[in-house]
């Protein structure tokens, strides 16, 4: 019997974490939120962040979960990966999410938050010089994502389309 118990690291909303192969790392029910994977081709470690809002300047309190915002969250995740010995210069990214779940025609900027989250993540990655290898963003469907570290594959599940890999 060569069966391993495959452990899945689950990342909550507005949170981030890292996993080491044979673990996989996943987050469920992404709507307007963005699930961003940071990984490289050399180590067996990857990080995932479940970004809820674009920028920490939106925060009305000084204390908040770093993972909630694209700017503070991506910075914190990179630091954690570096702490585990991953080189920042070798990092790559895959992302999914940023949907608009309800077809709201509103002046309220909060209703277009999916698009803004994606743009904010792109801006941060550009700043850190991290290339986006693959993405599945926008649309109006919820997504659950799981990253297989050894294959650098992101599994994306939606209700309508089923499972795809990027």
């Amino acid at each position: 019997m060569n069966q391993q118990v495959l452990e899945v690291v689950k990342v909550g909303i507005a949170d981030f974490n890292i996993a080491k192969h044979p673990q996989t790392i996943m987050t469920a029910g992404l709507g307007s939120c963005v699930g961003l994977i940071l990984y490289d081709n050399f180590s067996d470690i990857a990080g995932l962040i479940h970004v809820m809002l674009p920028d920490s300047t939106m925060a009305r309190n000084k204390s908040f979960k770093e993972g909630k915002f694209a700017d503070t969250g991506i910075k914190a995740l990179i630091e954690q990966l570096e702490f585990k010995g991953v080189r920042k210069s070798s990092l790559k990214a895959k992302m999914a999410g940023g949907a608009q779940m309800f077809n709201v025609k509103s002046e309220n900027e909060m209703m277009k938050i999916g698009f803004r989250n994606v743009e904010a993540v792109r801006k941060q990655l550009k700043q850190y010089n991290i290339p986006i290898v693959a993405e599945d963003v926008g649309g109006n469907r919820g997504r659950t994502v799981e990253f297989m570290i050894d294959e650098s594959l992101l599994k994306i599940r939606t209700i309508q389309e089923g499972v795809t890999y990027i």
């Binding site: 469920a28 709507g31 939106m58 009305r60 979960k65 077809n103 469907r141 919820g142 209700i159």
Partner: peptide
């Protein structure tokens, strides 16, 4: 507005205004 989808994906829409002030 109506949607049939994952609970997390839909409920988040109602949490955005709250999340700028609280966890």
């Amino acid at each position: 507005h109506v949607a049939i989808d994952m609970v997390g994906a839909m409920l988040t829409q109602g949490l955005l205004e709250i999340s700028v002030a609280s966890d």
